[in-house]
């Protein structure tokens, strides 16, 4: 089988989506010809060439303003009428991660992707909502705080290999919400310091 993973993070590197994409690619490598395309770095034509003949299109992206990042949305909008011509019968799988603890906040983005499938004539495979995205770089996927994420991605990879459709899953992190929120706030303060700002300056109001 042939599968393409589309990394929909606008970040050039070091994104949670990149880590998830690499994990999935490793899980699919033995059973599939599986490549990763970075949507922000590839042209629409390059991506359409990569999609040609695919059985599975796997979109991995961060939640942006409750939806799909605009560069990826633009790509989907542009290819909706032609993608089924090059990847006829392909199933779409999707992993959306967000910075809040609750995975279910990704549900609307999965619906948007489902609607893309209906418009483009592709088949919906399965969606995964992943909360606490800030932790994904903190440990190897499948271990410790990311144990449930590993299990969910393994199940998704199994469904992709078997060309199966399954219910969407929302992954509960293996650590408590208060700890995640405290760690996130610490990292916000650290990032402000990196740019020479004090925490209180993060509250500044911009002037036009």
């Amino acid at each position: 089988m042939k599968a393409v993973i589309i990394n929909g993070s606008p970040k050039a590197q070091d994104s949670a989506s990149e880590l998830i994409a690499a994990y999935l690619q490793a899980r699919l490598a033995q059973a599939a010809d599986c490549s990763v395309c970075h949507a922000a770095r590839y042209s629409r034509d390059e991506i359409m060439r990569a999609f040609t003949g695919c059985n599975a299109l796997i979109f991995v992206f961060p939640l942006y303003v409750d939806g799909i990042p605009s560069h990826l949305l633009r790509l989907l909008d542009e290819i909706q009428n032609s993608v089924a011509d090059v990847a006829s019968g392909a199933a779409v799988y999707c992993v959306v991660n967000n910075g809040f603890y609750e995975a279910h906040q990704n549900a609307v983005a999965l619906e948007l992707m489902g609607n893309f499938c209906v418009r483009s004539g592709l088949r919906w495979g399965q969606g995964l909502g992943v909360g606490a995205g800030g932790m994904i770089a903190a440990a190897p996927i499948g271990r410790g705080p990311l144990k449930n994420l590993g299990k969910a991605l393994d199940a998704l990879a199994e469904n992709i290999r078997n060309n199966k459709t399954a219910d969407n899953l929302f992954v509960k992190p293996n650590f408590p919400k208060f700890l995640y929120n405290a760690a996130a706030h610490m990292s916000f303060r650290a990032q402000a310091r990196k740019y020479g700002l004090k925490t209180k300056q993060l509250y500044d109001k911009p002037r036009q």
Partner: peptide, 28 residues
Amino acid sequence: HCMGCFRCWFKTPGRCVIDDRAADFVAL
């Protein structure tokens, strides 16, 4: 497009660092 740098939170609070017309949208 946004490039995911989050500098609108941590470097220039409330203003996107890409210097085009969208940078003023928050103030607006």
